[in-house]
């Protein structure tokens, strides 16, 4: 491949930053030019967050725009729906089925849309879904949802598993490394 545009979308606090750093490290190991654009600060407090990771021979803009994403990792179902426009027509989306209610739903001014997965699948072909929260819980750490989803991505892309393994070991803090390796493997075998 000569380029790869990956987006991570989710809710602030779900560990999207760590996932993006692992993906950045992988690009580097594969000798791509890479840019990772993160969101820090206010929107991290439970808001809708998006991270862009771009691999290529030479990357200028760090942003991925509508219709340009090859892969979207959606950490939450409503966020998957929100960002589908960014997926290119042949793009792949990996969706964690977890639902996190945003404030307009808590206050009753909006409803959580029903049937999100089917709506997305009707339009896009490469959609994979799983309950990553359940898998993370089984691995012993609810926060490992991010690594479970990376495991799924690893299984669905041509990047060597060895590279994933190295990148995780270099990026994840030592005290939670084992549970994250377990979560990665569980995600790898999930679909």
């Amino acid at each position: 491949m000569d380029k790869l545009n990956i987006m991570i979308v989710g809710v602030g606090g779900q560990g999207t930053l760590l996932a993006s750093r692992i993906l950045g490290t992988i690009a580097f190991k594969m000798n791509y030019d890479v840019k990772v654009s993160e969101v820090h600060g206010m929107s991290q407090r439970g808001g809708s967050v998006v991270t862009y990771i771009k691999y290529g021979t030479k990357i200028y803009s760090p942003l991925i725009e509508k219709g340009e994403a090859d892969i979207i990792l959606a950490f939450e179902k409503l966020e998957a729906l929100r960002w589908t426009e960014y997926l290119n027509n042949d793009g792949m989306m990996i969706i964690n089925e977890q639902e996190i209610a945003p404030m307009p739903i808590i206050t009753g001014t909006a409803k959580y849309p029903s049937d999100i997965i089917n709506i997305i699948k009707q339009k896009y072909k490469n959609i994979f879904t799983l309950d990553a929260l359940k898998i993370a819980k089984q691995c012993g750490n609810l926060k490992a949802v991010n690594i479970v989803l990376l495991g799924v991505m690893a299984a669905k892309t041509a990047i060597a598993k060895q590279i994933w393994d190295e990148a995780i070991r270099e990026t994840v803090p030592a005290k939670v490394l084992n549970v994250n390796i377990e979560a990665f493997n569980a995600g790898y075998q999930a679909i």
């Binding site: 991290q44 808001g47 725009e65 409503l78 589908t84 945003p102 404030m103 307009p104 909006a110 339009k123």
Partner: peptide
Amino acid sequence: KQEVNEQLVENIPVRPPVMC
């Protein structure tokens, strides 16, 4: 103008940041 797909659903509820 880049051709882009339309939103699959209208009025997707917004997700402003919240206190933890």
